[in-house]
Nucleic acid binder design. Sequence first.
DNA 1: CCTTGAACCTGCGGGC
DNA 2: TGCCCGCAGGTTCAAG
Length: 275
Amino acid sequence: MPELPEVETTVRGLRKILLGHSIVAVAVRTKQLRFAFPRGFSGKLQNARILGVERRAKYILISLSTGQSLLVHLGMSGRMQQTSAAQKPARHDHVVLTLSNGTTVTYNDPRRFGVMDLVATGREDEHKLLRTIGPEPLGKDLNVDYLTEKLRGKKTAIKVALLDQRIIAGLGNIYVSEALYWAGIHPARAAGDLKKKEIEALIPAIQKVLKASIKAGGTSMRDYVQADGALGFFQNQFAVYDRAGQPCPDRACRGLIKQMVQGGRSTYFCPRKQR
DNA sequence: CCTTGAACCTGCGGGC
DNA sequence: TGCCCGCAGGTTCAAG
């Protein structure tokens, strides 16, 4: 999916479109996404005014005048964007919100791995899906002491550990490969064996990659688009992801990018630079 | 507790 | 052209 940069980009776009407007109509066009919609979903959004649009991990939180927040996860293939009210819904347009100014915002998700739920505003962190999520990687809670403690004794590969949302929020398959490349760490290393110096390199590498991607509007490979329909361009800056067989971006290294499978998912790395 | 693998669902590209 | 297989940005759950 959409990993942190894509969700952040979506949130920033939605904020401009949604903030201050009211929802006048809600069309739910599928039985369920990953879970069934909560009881009375449409009715509880009806006539609500949108007070805020925030991100936590890979979740979008839209706070409403009703005291509830709409929680949205884009799953693997989801997108949420402004659409034309005149246009009839497309395949996989599962939820269409119509605003008081006539704008429509559509949630489209071919694979339906996404989520929509309602949660009391201010108590979002107590939601079942958010309760166990780790610190935001761009905040001060992700630091060397925290990560050292969290990885201590772990035999899992560092690649797999970084995908675990309980350790760090928001990373996914693309940005983990990219961050490990910039930190010079081999993805198969046991997480608990990383040296202090390596953890000190890893945190800024994660932050650098995420920030660069947000700046580029995220990554558009298949489904993802920003809230205004624009594509993201971070795929043009990939160092390793989806680049198997191609040269390491460090020309002096002369290594070739390798692909392997860890935890059932592809990992990309430079075997010469990452040890 | 930890680790691994399968499951959810749809679409697309490659090989035959 | 068509069919079958594998793979895709995520997460949860069962089993060992």
